[in-house]
Design a protein around this nucleic acid. Structure first.
Lengths: 222, 222
DNA sequence: TTCTATATTTGTCAAGTGTCCTATATTGGT
DNA sequence: ACCAATATAGGACACTTGACAAATATAGAA
């Protein structure tokens, strides 16, 4: 419970990979640009992310923006990478907690994910990604890589809770869990019509997941 | 099982509301335009839906397109309405089947939804809607109206399976089920990385849903 | 200070966008 | 065949978009 809030404050919205050369000011402007682009994406959607708007929102001239990001594709790719990386760091941090029972830890992970779904950033950012991933293979692969890393700790805990299950079976269950939770973005995400029902959806989710894992027999899945 | 395929062939992609006046040819062109716009949306995403592209794809001159749809907003609204209506008709058809047990009918509904998620049209169209709904209240209300009608038959069956549950509890469970299934679009939808795992996700889904409904006690939810 | 790598500005380009307007053609009932 | 309602075509407008180029300014190590 404490860890949830700890992560919330530690993990930044953007994680930028270190650049090769360049001055300090250059790196600041670089980050400023990505932050402005993210705000634009969250507040007004992908349609609003144009080179000129990003330039204006970040207080940078258009010509200077194209110096850091020669093409819009560069800008978008770096932005998605930076944002997705922040989630990956969040999930990787979960793996290194070994204090309680497997069931309790799995519950914590689900709570963490579902609480995050209620966030403005997550509610707005991911549907945009899902739409983009339908026509952009880079986005598709990058987002699936994120989900794969999110499932990783789940798979381990599922196997620990029900050791009779094979690795493939655990993977399928984790996939099912991840998909189930992501779907709630549209209904109970930030400012969505059922946002107030999220606490009960969390209880339903956890109860249903735990019941599924413990009652699952190797014959139910290949 | 037979009904699933029956619906697949009967329900058209577009359901247009009847117009007031106009010649026959006008109605044909009207439908042609919406169909071209839908194809564009599905194959290339919302960014590709411009007035000129729709005009070209439907073999209509730009000036004529603005005769039928004076503004792009008109075109998009009519398109979404026409597509969403087709899904509503599909779900309403389910309500009028009273041949087997409640559990079996609920299973059939879930199979129908999950099979539909594997469709190219659904996999491509809905993420686009979800993204749009974040910044367009019309889209948000229209899509939530669709989901409400999709939950309707579920709520009745849930209540029939477990009569101890209150109406609100049944609503929450149906919401949970709908969200869970929608989430699988991103993972196991058309040409998605886990599309081949959909059959097992269906089995997991159904088992988990039925177990949840029958094992749920009124104390688990308010 | 000097000087090179880095950063910033200003301007321009062709292409695409939504919307509007006017003239012309076609439909289908009388 | 007539003719009003409907449909189609073509062009224009103001605006945005991504990309590029050349000139200038700044940083920071030597």
């Amino acid at each position: 419970m404490k860890n949830r809030f700890k992560n919330k404050f530690i993990v930044p919205d953007l994680v930028l990979q270190e650049r090769e050369g360049g001055y300090d000011k250059g790196r600041d402007v670089y980050e400023q640009i990505l932050r402005a682009a993210l705000d634009l994406l969250i507040d007004q959607g992908y349609r609003a992310v144009s080179m000129r708007r990003v330039a204006a929102a970040s207080g940078v001239k258009l010509g200077n923006l194209t110096y850091y990001f020669p093409t819009k594709e560069d800008l978008v790719r770096e932005l998605l990478n930076a944002v997705i990386s922040s989630y990956e760091i969040e999930f990787d941090a979960i793996v290194h907690e070994e204090d309680t029972t497997a069931i309790h830890r799995l519950e914590e992970i689900c709570v963490l994910i579902l609480e995050d779904i209620g966030t403005k950033k997550t509610t707005r950012f991911f549907p945009e990604l899902w739409a983009l991933s339908n026509h952009d293979d880079f986005v598709l692969e990058r987002i699936q890589e994120l989900y794969a890393r999110a499932r990783h700790p789940m798979v381990r805990l599922i196997s620990e809770i029900n050791p009779a299950l094979s690795a493939d079976q655990c993977e399928t269950i984790a996939l099912f869990m991840s998909a189930s939770m992501e779907g709630m973005t549209i209904f109970a995400g930030f400012e969505k019509p059922f946002a107030d029902k999220m606490p009960w959806l969390e209880r339903l989710t956890i109860k249903s997941f735990i019941d599924l894992i413990v009652s699952m027999t190797p014959e139910d899945l290949p």
